[in-house]
Structure formats: structure tokens, C-alpha cells
């Protein structure tokens, strides 16, 4: 039998420090980083959005910045561009990712590994590099890869990024053909997690290949699809690098997205108060859309 010695009573602060001192010390570092680099800028931006910001002397102007941006035609145009970009890219990307994953999943392990690595590769490259490659592809002369392609079919070259009616579509096309690697990895992991016995049971239950796909595979991958949908929408609402690198929001604001507008307002026109207001409208929009997605698409599958 073991006996427990009575604790010596010391000051509770001292005891807490002895027991948890190191733990608090380790937690302190990330907490400080969060406070300095996340919470402080967010709170400052929120305050700034109600100010006529000046580095020396800011003045409180209430909701003026918000009123201004809602009356600004460029803001609405950028909002429209962002929504079009999101609606056109996210669902198509999910379908492309899903189909590619489904095809890869049928392959032998070594081919699966090969395709996973190959398709993930663009995710490792920086957005700037990818944009430069796509600038070459969209080159308006017949040196451009895409125009060369059109030339084979006897079509005239297109000024992809230089005219309003094709510029946004070009960015969307680039996004469709961009990186699906991360999504593929997630889908493949989810597909591997669906018990094989479900498909065997379905085989015995007279399910056709299509029924198995629609009634088993697709519903069971819903949590992954929801994740990709939410993160995809957030990412595309914040699309910036390709716009900055390839079109600078032009021509005639045809590719100005909210994120690019915020950049322009803040760092080209130095209207930090207005840019902060734009940022908070964007954040609110993203939260709203995410909540709606969770509400309508969330699933409680457990297996």
C-alpha cells in the first residue's frame, strides 16, 4: 500500500508557477504573436474605418467611409467582378478536383502517387511565378500559347487581358487550369476513408455504378466538399495576386476585385480609412457566405 504525504501548504501563486510556469511561458510566445500581428491590426483597422486617417492626426468621422464606399460605383463594380469570379471558379474547380480525384483513386498505388505529386506541384510554386507563366500563355500576339492554339484552328488572335470582355474570363480560365492538388489530396483521403464494405453491400443491393456514385460516394464526401467550398469561396473573394500581376484591375475596371480595390485605395490613394471600411465589408461578406454554406451544406456523416 502506498501512503500519500500531505502537501506542504505554500502560497498558491508560487504553487501555480511551479506547476504551470513553463506551460504559460510556452503559450506566451504564440499569444504575443497573435496579439501583435493579428488582433492589434484588426482592431486598429476597425477603428481606422471610422476615421479620416492621417499618420499624424486622424479625425473621427463615424460611418462616412462606409457611406462613401456604398455610393462608389467602382466598389460595386469590384463587388460584381468578385462575385462573378467566385461563382465561376469555385463550383467548376470542385467538379474538376472531384473528377480528377475519382479517376486517380481507381489507379494503382504507384500511379496515384505520381499524379498526386504532379498535380500538387503548382501549389508549391508562388502565385507570382504562375502569373508570369500565364502572362506568356495569354500574350496578345501570336507568340502567346493560347493564340497559337487558336491559330491552328484558323482563328484570329485575341487580346486576352487587354479587352474588357475577355479579361475577367481569362483570369477565371487561369484559375480553372490552376492548382487542384490540395483538393485532390483531401478528396483522395476521404475516398480512402469510405469503408469498402459499403460498396460491397451496395453491389449486393443491386446498385448500379451511377447509383453507388450518387447515393454513396458523393454524400459521404460531402464534408470534404463543404470544406473545399468554404475555403474556395474565401480564397476567391480575396483574389489579388493574379489581378495585380496580370491586369492591374483593368481594362476599365473589368478585373478589379475587392481585394485589389482595397490595395489600390490604401497604397495608391493612401485612403487607409476607406480601405479599412472596404476590408470590413469584405470580411463581413465572407463570414455571411460561410455561415450560409455551413447552414445549407453541413452534414453529420459518421462512419
Amino acid at each position: 500500500m502506498t501512503t500519500i504525504a500531505p502537501n506542504r501548504v505554500r502560497s498558491s501563486a508560487g504553487r501555480l508557477w511551479r506547476e504551470y510556469g513553463w506551460a504559460y511561458l510556452f503559450i506566451l510566445a504564440p499569444v504575443l504573436l497573435f496579439l501583435v500581428f493579428t488582433l492589434y491590426p484588426v482592431v486598429s483597422a476597425l477603428i481606422m474605418s471610422f476615421q479620416q486617417y492621417n499618420i499624424m492626426n486622424s479625425t473621427w468621422i463615424g460611418f462616412d467611409n462606409y457611406e462613401r464606399l456604398f455610393q462608389d460605383a467602382t466598389f460595386w463594380k469590384s463587388m460584381r467582378n468578385t462575385v462573378i469570379f467566385t461563382v465561376c471558379t469555385v463550383p467548376v474547380n470542385i467538379i474538376i478536383t472531384f473528377v480528377l480525384s475519382y479517376l486517380i483513386y481507381q489507379m494503382k498505388t504507384k500511379w496515384q502517387t505520381f499524379f498526386k505529386a504532379t498535380l500538387y506541384l503548382p501549389a508549391v510554386a508562388s502565385g507570382v511565378t504562375i502569373s508570369i507563366v500565364w502572362l506568356a500563355i495569354f500574350d496578345p500576339t501570336n507568340v502567346g500559347l493560347l493564340n497559337r492554339f487558336l491559330e491552328w484552328f484558323g482563328l484570329d488572335p485575341v487580346i486576352w487581358l487587354g479587352q474588357s470582355k475577355t479579361a475577367l474570363f481569362s483570369l477565371i480560365l487561369m484559375n480553372w487550369l490552376g492548382s487542384h492538388g490540395a483538393g485532390i489530396i483531401l478528396y483522395l483521403a476521404s475516398m480512402g476513408g469510405v469503408p469498402k464494405s459499403l460498396y460491397e453491400a451496395a453491389d449486393i443491393d443491386h446498385a448500379s455504378g451511377w447509383t453507388k456514385f450518387t447515393r454513396i460516394t458523393w454524400p459521404l464526401l460531402k464534408p470534404t466538399t463543404l470544406y473545399l467550398l468554404v475555403t474556395g469561396v474565401i480564397t476567391s473573394f480575396q483574389v489579388f495576386i493574379s489581378v495585380y500581376m496580370m491586369t492591374q484591375g483593368g481594362p476599365n475596371f473589368a478585373t478589379t476585385t475587392i481585394a485589389y480595390l482595397i490595395y489600390q485605395t490604401a497604397f495608391q490613394f493612401y485612403e487607409f480609412g476607406l480601405a479599412s471600411a472596404q476590408s470590413f465589408v469584405l470580411a463581413f461578406l465572407i463570414i455571411l457566405v460561410s455561415v450560409i454554406q455551413f447552414k445549407y451544406f453541413s452534414s453529420d456523416v459518421e462512419y
Binding site: 464494405s197 460491397e200 453491400a201 449486393i204 443491386h206 454513396i216 456523416v301 459518421e302 462512419y303
Partner: peptide, 20 residues
């Protein structure tokens, strides 16, 4: 013959119930 054409029913060890 494919499993569906054998006119059999099977109870699996893990039950294989469709969770959704």
C-alpha cells in the same frame, strides 16, 4: 455472375450500414 445477380443477401462484420 455479379453479386447482385446471385440472389443472395449478406450481413457484414461491420454491418456496412449507409451512415447518411
Amino acid at each position: 455472375l455479379h453479386p447482385k445477380d446471385r440472389d443472395i443477401a449478406m450481413v457484414f462484420q461491420d454491418y456496412a450500414l449507409y451512415p447518411h
